[in-house]
Amino acid sequence: MKILVAVKRVVDANVKVRVNGDNTGVELANVKMAMNPFCEIAVEEAVRLKEKGVASEVVAVTIGPKAAQEQLRTALALGADRAIHIQTEEHVESLVVAKLLATVVEAEQPGLTILGKQAIDTDNNQTGQMLAALTGMAQGTFASEVKVDNDKVAVTREIDGGLQTIELILPAVITTDLRLNEPRYAKLPDIMKAKKKPLDVKWPTDLGVAVQSKLTLLKVESPAERKGGIKVGSVDELVDKLKNEAKVI
């Protein structure tokens, strides 16, 4: 079975992002970029399935600017066999990403397609579900456990009330939650080897998908800042403040 895994280049999770001066987005100059943490988990899961002998090949795909090849090289260093870069410098919204991925699914026919449940920049949590709908595949979102069994996959999902396990007929789409696995770090020799692995570049027009936005970003603002509070000296003082000043207990 082949596994397709989608990855996104985003601002590193440890960066405290700031809205830019003209309120059109966030400050991106000289900001550290990285693979979206949920995508790292997706790559790790795909690689583990290959190591267990469940998968025969892992193909990583990204949609994004030229620089996103860095994240594809990371995926290759972590164990993906080859990579596909659908290159565009434009902002691509989830539906278009899903349409582009659907063309890759059509061409590659993976048994499983694994994506992160959300990208930590736009926080949309949409692409995997949209891809599943467009390709007619079943979906197992927010996965914390994945077990492939012949033509089926059992997915344990993190839901609001706890955990839910569903069974899907393959091919299927899975989106990863945080506790699915702990991604490994790429080792230096693997990083060197990754440089030689195949990386195919395509353009959205090659795939017959128009990169158009139906959502217009009008403005980006900073959220209301919280005023810093005070330190209390004791539990009694805390209880007194909560009762008599904040009046919340």
Partner: peptide, 23 residues
Amino acid sequence: ASTTGKNVLPRVAALKDVSQISE
């Protein structure tokens, strides 16, 4: 914007060929 809403609504949007707006 619950795990149910997030699971289902993007599918609906894709089936209707429209974007989805989250949260």
